[in-house]
Amino acid sequence: MIKVALIGAGKMGISHLAILGAHPEVEVVGVADTTKMVTEVLSKYTNFQCFSDYNKMIEEERPDAVVVAVPTKYHASLVEKLLNEGIHVFVEKPFCLSVNDGIALTKIATEKNLVNQVGYHNKFIGTFLEAKRLIDQGAIGEILHFSGDMNGPVVIKQKQNNWRSKPEEGGGCLMDYAAHLIDLINYLVAPIANVQGAILKSFYSGAVEDSVFSLLETENHISGVINVNWSDETFRKMSTEVTIIGTQGKIIVDATELKVYFKNEINDNTNSYKNYTRGWNIKHINDFSEEVDFYLRGEEYSAQMDHFIKAVQQRVPNHINNFESAAQTDYVIDLIRNFNN
């Protein structure tokens, strides 16, 4: 059994807690949160041991691993402390407010040989994984251009006053929302290295942007564009779609559907493209989603936590969503923000 503790029982924290609670190889040794009502409800109605002070929890319970789901501005100092205690860390996205903090944490985690993972759950969604597989095998030839769209109904009217509306605390559509898309493009296409244009526009929030429009270029000079708007109520929930254009075809992928167009009949010597033919190929999430032991809101949330636990058990390498890749995403966020300024 891996002893896991949670710091931060807000929306994501509670969801992680339920997944950890149902995980057969996890013993949840503590939950820390500063909201009294939350710890009170959990103490009264669950078997989790609750703490208002996470230091006390760490000291008393000595967890092997900690899941951190506190507002972004606390990530860097908290994660550093945990790593120095020799604890494996899963932290929610976005990683850090400052790129340098993220790089420093990556260094500590590597030196101490601790498992480190950030909650970019798209990399555990079957359709995106299949798109990645096709791209890496050169199925659509050389990549020419990408475009990413992300929309959802997070802020649809003028109000809201919490940390998400404060730029200095990691609020705003760029850090809190577009981060997912940037991270996904870094993964699917190649790390983004240049920003050639950026508009960060506020529709309702005032202090922070509600949308991000940007022209980008990867380190291997693939051009692309992202359109992100978290104030679009025509979307029922977060929707992320990436289009990738290659010399031999095109991929349009979101969390539920993969559409692949091949210009020519595929020369499949390795038998790795079975079921794909010339022209359009439409696949759905149920063609790829791997069964999970416990489901809450999507296979990807259980799958990412399971991956973290397996990495702690040294059963899988720690290469998906590690601090290094998340720091790379922070770096692109910084580039976009600086261009806009």
Binding site: A18, F294, L296
Partner: peptide, 15 residues
Amino acid sequence: NVITDLLLGLGMKDF
């Protein structure tokens, strides 16, 4: 289901 499964994961029998 989101509520059922959340309560299930948290082990909230009383609810």
